[in-house]
Computed example of a mutant assay.
Amino acid sequence: MKKREENLLNCVIKEHIRTGQPVGSDLLAGKHGLKLSSATIRNEMAELEKRGYLTHPYTSAGRIPTEKGYYFYLENFLEEKELDKKIKNNLKKVKKQFKKSPQFLLKEIAKILTESSEGTILVSSQPHDVYFTGLTNLFSQPEFREFGLISHLSRVIDHFDEQIENIFTQIDEEVEVMVGRKNPFNEECSMIITKYHLPEGSKGIIGILGPMRMDYEHNLALLKYIKELLNRPAA
Rank of each mutant, 00 (worst) to 15 (best):
M1I: 07
K2A: 03
E5V: 00
E6Y: 02
N7K: 11
N10G: 05
N10P: 02
C11E: 15
V12S: 11
V12P: 11
K14E: 14
K14Y: 12
H16S: 12
T19W: 13
Q21A: 12
P22M: 04
G30T: 01
K31N: 08
K31T: 14
L36Y: 00
S37H: 02
T40I: 00
R42Y: 07
M45R: 05
M45F: 10
A46R: 14
E49G: 05
G52Q: 03
Y53A: 07
T55Q: 02
E67I: 08
G69N: 06
G69Q: 06
F72E: 03
E75H: 13
E75I: 12
N76C: 01
F77L: 01
L78F: 00
L83T: 05
D84S: 06
N90S: 09
L91C: 10
K93G: 13
V94K: 11
K96R: 09
Q97W: 15
Q97C: 15
F98T: 03
K100F: 13
K100A: 10
K100W: 10
S101W: 10
P102G: 04
P102Q: 06
L106Y: 04
E108M: 14
E108L: 12
I109F: 12
A110H: 05
A110C: 07
I112F: 02
L113F: 07
E118Q: 14
V123S: 08
S124I: 01
S125W: 04
H128S: 14
D129S: 14
D129M: 14
V130S: 01
L135D: 10
L135H: 05
T136S: 10
N137G: 00
L138R: 00
F139M: 02
S140H: 06
E143F: 11
R145G: 07
R145V: 07
H152K: 14
H152V: 09
L153G: 01
R155C: 13
I157W: 11
H159P: 04
D161Q: 12
Q163V: 12
Q163P: 01
E165H: 09
I167C: 06
F168R: 02
F168C: 03
E173Y: 08
E173I: 10
E174H: 13
V175S: 04
E176R: 11
V177D: 01
M178N: 09
M178P: 05
V179Q: 03
F185A: 01
N186S: 08
N186M: 01
I192V: 08
K195W: 10
Y196G: 06
Y196N: 08
Y196H: 08
H197N: 15
H197D: 13
L198I: 07
P199E: 05
P199Y: 05
G201K: 06
K203P: 04
G204C: 04
G204W: 03
I206M: 14
I206S: 11
G207V: 06
G207P: 08
P211V: 02
M212Q: 04
M214A: 02
M214G: 03
D215C: 08
E217I: 04
L223P: 09
L223F: 09
K224S: 14
Y225V: 01
I226G: 03
K227N: 13
K227A: 11
E228Q: 15
E228P: 13
L229K: 09
R232C: 11
R232E: 15
P233V: 05
A235E: 13
